[in-house]
Design a protein around this nucleic acid. Structure first.
Lengths: 245, 245
DNA sequence: TGTCCACGTTGACACAGATCAAAGCTCCCC
DNA sequence: GGGGAGCTTTGATCTGTGTCAACGTGGACA
């Protein structure tokens, strides 16, 4: 498909962390110029993952974490009986693979939802560098901690919110993350199917579809396939805060 | 209640990590003797938390993480509308407070479910030490990663399991953690109420109660108030793996 | 240009778990 | 040792979401 090898080495030089336009979102956040230069040595391999392909699978040996340079991923966990749960959707600047550190094996699958490129960060190297660079160490800890807080947020979704609240929270979260990346807060394309949204939100795809339709009827959003336009951000937020008993 | 000050300083000397019987479960795991000695300098303040008291609250400034020396905690998150969700139950040897690193504020409440004692680990000190001691650094990363994996497990509970599966998973998880601490795998006292179990599992307390009763009727466990005896571990596990459509 | 296929929408009905209600148990405190 | 508060159990009923089914839609590809 792509002349990978040739392109990669060139890309490595030209697109190191110090030049990356995601450096304020991604792992290098808060580093000085010279520290950034050191990072360029750490993160010098990139990997292209086509839509539908796995970046890693549950059970794979853990060797590296991955920073998403471009593209969009989902992570999911499979139960033996075939049921599965999407545990997250990740976009540019976010880190994949943190689940694998504890057991030295990946504990979920990471699958590209569109053609994507990730920066490979060998984990022992990261630990070595972060013993040298305090700011890197600290930022890495923050990244992990935020992942825990994010998971707590999902637990709230799943534990106490009703279907429409879950979907509203989901849309607002996407909106906020797109905004942070310089995209429109109110208009975007979903990269995942209704089924994947449902799996993430603990709902069936029909329920997701109905909630989208209801939001549209109420003038909160417009939906055309995967294209979403948020018409009434405040209205969505109100759905979250007001408990109609 | 307790003559805290006097006791604490004595306790500090006698109950440092190197002497602690939890050292194989807790943060010091995998350190050498001399590294353990260094840890004793890091972790030298303990704090007693009586039942019902907060170790920290959501919004508190984050300064330290805590290793549970004795006792039992829950963590929960409150929504503005008054709903709340228990995000975890923690026992001896487990670490509290990791959620606060990312935002420099705690993002949940940690409440003692019985009189407890925690070791205070000032976070900047921990980062300093773990830049010196590679094994400490690595183990800390594992602890954080495992917290993420644990949260994914809860997401599975909440996202795709039915009520009885959730409760079975909960009991088996407790059993396994008690076992690791040298207690009986099959007989223990719950420290939390039905309501707290329900909040953790995304169920109402009546549903939890009914599920306990059903398990008892089926001969899987006996329940007397908070005292649980597991009669049929395999039966509980079967509940998890077999999907009756 | 037509056909196929995965994905999405909508409707009808079923059911797991929520809600409401009442009564029992235990432990604590006076 | 009596009273009460908090917790738990159990029953009756309600309801949000799941399930099943039919149909619609748009993009890929021959």
């Amino acid at each position: 498909m792509h002349a990978q090898v040739g392109h990669l080495s060139v890309a490595s030089l030209r697109e190191a962390c110090s030049q990356c336009n995601l450096r304020e979102l991604c792992l290098p956040m808060g580093l000085t110029e010279s520290e950034l230069g050191q990072l360029d040595e750490l993160v010098n391999v990139r990997k292209r993952i086509l839509r539908g392909q796995h970046l890693y699978r549950g059970g794979d040996v853990f060797e590296a974490i991955y920073a998403i340079k471009t593209g969009f991923f989902k992570t999911d966990v499979l139960l033996e009986d075939g049921r599965d749960q999407v545990t997250g959707f990740q976009m540019a600047g976010e880190i994949l693979g943190l689940d694998g550190i504890g057991s030295e094996k990946h504990t979920c699958n990471a699958i590209a939802l569109e053609d994507s490129e990730v920066c490979v960060i060998p984990f022992t190297d990261l630990e070595d560098y972060s013993r040298e660079i305090g700011a890197l160490q600290h930022h890495f800890h923050k990244v992990m901690s935020r992942e825990i807080v994010r998971d707590h947020g999902v637990m709230m979704l799943l534990g106490i919110m009703r279907a429409e609240e879950r979907l509203a929270a989901f849309l607002l979260n996407l909106s906020q993350r797109f905004t942070a990346r310089g995209y429109s807060p109110t208009e975007f394309n979903l990269r995942m199917t209704r089924n994947e949204i449902g799996s993430y939100l603990g709902l069936k795809l029909e329920t997701v579809s109905r909630a989208f339709s209801r939001f549209q009827d109420e003038g909160l959003i417009t939906v055309h396939q995967k294209h979403i336009q948020i018409l009434d951000v405040a209205g969505l937020k109100k759905l979250l805060s007001e408990r109609r008993v």
